[in-house]
Write a protein that binds this DNA or RNA. Structure first.
Ligand code: SF4
Ligand code: SF4
Lengths: 152, 152
DNA sequence: CCATTTAAAGACTAAATACTCTTAAATCTT
DNA sequence: AAGATTTAAGAGTATTTAGTCTTTAAATGG
């Protein structure tokens, strides 16, 4: 469905959003918390900075940060930056040149689901997600935090 | 989303369903009509016969056929035979051990779409699809047939 | 200026996916 | 029995995806 790179990118961006600091967060910090390969994550985040979704800064106290408020970053921007738009054009029977004009027999129902998916990604902002995280004590890290957080 | 093998498998099975002959159809015939590599399609259909979705017969007048009436073969059987069930468990943030118990912030909306997708595949039979093909003059082959079929 | 910290860039390796090719086995026709 | 037709099986290759490692460049602080 989504590539690993895409999933990691989403998780990393969301993690940064939950910190809502002004400061840059080192990629190492993120990769440690999310249990993602540091070097792989570095490449993924490079893509996101190239797409102006994140900012980076080198040197001590450097790292990465959101390029704009979390309200203005939605999931589809990240997905499309990393995986392209193929997800919303590729399809279940994948006939050459198919589409609304020359639909295969699954087109109608399938494209409905596809656009629901797209709509979800379009309306899901990092702000919305991170708000829900704190509101419902959800978790995004690989560790044991979240619902039943450790008491000590 | 779906692997190539899965898409090819669906197309091939649907093609056989539209012929609704009692006879076995040679894989070569299918691969020619659908413009799929013969050898690759052979392997895919082997998987489907191993999963008792199709029958095969060797030698002259041999080929493959549906293992049961097209009404009793639905898309999800083919998808799961070829791609496994990973599609309905893997997910957008793919956290270790996540799920209804320990959901990520996208779980609720995402799992709704996921089950819609599953439901669609469960309720889509080869019979239904092939009926729609003839009813609306849709096309599944790679050639120029279908809506504006060649006049000569 | 030098050492340290950090991301950027790119070469490299590993694994999964998507094919291709060869050989074997079953079946039919003659 | 011989030869043709067709799937089965499995080895082999190519491409893509995933991940590692090394080197370079930018920034900071002493
Ligand atoms: S559902 Fe639509 S886009 Fe997808 S394969 Fe069928 S015709 Fe093409
Ligand atoms: S939507 Fe559900 S299944 Fe998917 S990553 Fe989130 S918690 Fe896991």
């Amino acid at each position: 469905m989504f590539s690993k790179a895409c999933v990691y990118g989403l998780r990393a961006a969301l993690y940064v959003a939950t910190l809502d600091k002004q400061a840059f967060v080192p990629i190492k910090t993120i990769s440690d918390h999310l249990d993602i390969s540091f070097h792989f994550l570095t490449k993924i985040l490079q893509t996101l900075t190239q797409h102006h979704i994140m900012l980076s800064y080198r040197g001590p106290n450097g790292g990465i940060a959101l390029a704009r408020p979390a309200e203005q970053i939605n999931a589809i921007q990240i997905v499309e930056a990393i995986d392209g738009t193929r997800l919303f054009s590729d399809c279940i029977l994948d006939l050459p040149g198919c589409g609304t004009q020359r639909p295969c027999p699954m087109h109608e129902q399938w494209s409905r689901i596809r656009s629901e998916m797209k709509h979800l990604l379009e309306t899901t902002t990092l702000a919305g997600l991170s708000e829900r995280i704190s509101q419902f004590d959800l978790r995004i890290t690989a560790d044991e935090g979240g619902l039943n957080s450790p008491g000590g």
